[in-house]
Amino acid sequence: MKCQHCGNNEAEYQYTITVGNHQIERYLCSVCAKQLGYKTGNADLSFDQLFSDFLNTKVQKQASEVVCPRCGSTWAEIQGSGKVGCAECYQTFSDRLLPYVQKIHGTVVHVGRAPQAETVARKAEGILSRLQAQLDAAVEEQNYEQAAIYRDEIRALKGGMEQ
């Protein structure tokens, strides 16, 4: 079997990692295993041996490790390659990734373009919060007729956003 990380070398090691309630098996060559920060133990360990003894302790050791629920990446893998496995990794490992991002870019706040859908959503959110403030003010003034108009507008806008 080929290494699941580089896809070139023969896999020598098997690691079991926990993703949510599931366990995922990863097959890695010794180079990638080292690179990704896994302990490689005896270089001659075969899969059979791994299954019989090494694996048992390894599984227990790694069971508590945080794993991205989407792609199965571990922090050790991200650290080893300097790259994440999917968009969700940025949430899963945000506490560890953000300091790294801060170090590279000197900030963690994006300035610049956004996808059109995002721009539209932001605009709608702006309108929504303005309407909400107007609604609150109308209720405060006991102007219920006007408040009902704002309420309906908010409902219509929210309906549109959900669609």
């Binding site: 300097g82 790259k83 994006h110």
Partner: peptide, 11 residues
Amino acid sequence: DRKLGYLTKCP
């Protein structure tokens, strides 16, 4: 992501 912008494999 609103905070991080376009998400890429390499940070």
